[in-house]
Amino acid sequence: MMPLLKPRTGGLLSLMVILVVLPLFFRNAYHYDVAIQSGLNAIVCVGLNLLIGYTGQISLGHAGFFALGAYASAVLTDRYEFAAVGAMIIGAVAVGCLSYLIARPILKLKGHYLAMATLGLGIIISIILNQEEELTGGPDGMPVSSFSFFGWDISGNLTWYGIVALVLLFTVWLALNLVDSPVGRALRAVHGSELAASTMGVDTQRYKVLIFVFSAVLASIAGSIFAHYSGFVSPAEGEFFRSIEFVTMVVLGGMASIFGAVVGAAILTILPQLLASFHDYEMMVHGAVLMGVMIFMRRGLVPTLVHFIRGLRK
């Protein structure tokens, strides 16, 4: 097999090249904005894909973790004058603890019941963000100060793009290593057959919890970055539809494919922008595209493409 088709070396390298070359095509802040949003979504999706694609557990509540991270940064820096980095870390640790606490009982549930429980969790978070107006500004949201790092105020599109790109690369690298590690093999066993895996002595529960917490923390960090970048957060970030959107990105890109998650996130962030010119027909086309891709490429974009390219080489 060509080294370029090997995800750990070739894939990561290609992603790096793409991320470096991409800004050459950007002409304005709007282009950067779409790229940065795609990158942030991709960070969440890489984590979520480990959960959905490798352990076979579904979560319809990850937008809740994203929003918690975003609001931790917004509230702590704005209302309590925390340093941005500190707020981000506190947010990530808090989300980590919360997800760890609920992971064990909740991951005992199967299939749709797990989906329901995570969905409920996400909705509870979003209701709290909506109701605690004193703290969160309620449904209208709240402004967030810029990210200052040891006296350096991060601003400018290229800088933000660079930061998001670096975090994304690091996330992908981490995920690739995780998948190739003994943990990853155990995970695949869990996905194949949990019963068989546990009979063989794999502590399935432990790995599921680990991945759940990892993906929640990633979502929280992405949320924190988003809050400072966008300068404004609103409870819409934590809505049920956002969670669904994340899952859709993962499935569209291809389950159990780390790069699939990145591609899925990018496509579903860009798609609505392309469809904006359809005006009245925007929603219809959006829905039709989702259905079409899933019907014709049932394993998701990236696995289908890889399969196709391998087929050509034979």
């Binding site: 304005n28 802040a29 709007y30 904005d33 949003q37 209208d140 966008s230 300068g231 404004f232 970030e237």
Partner: peptide, 30 residues
């Protein structure tokens, strides 16, 4: 709100509009 932010960047930088009249909700406007 996030979509409003993206839309306004697009209006200003891409479409180079002369003036903006819009923002149905207070959250989007803020």
């Amino acid at each position: 709100a996030k979509k409003a932010v993206t839309a306004v960047k697009r209006l200003i930088d891409q479409d180079k509009v002369d003036v903006i009249v819009g923002g149905s909700t207070s959250g989007q406007t803020m």
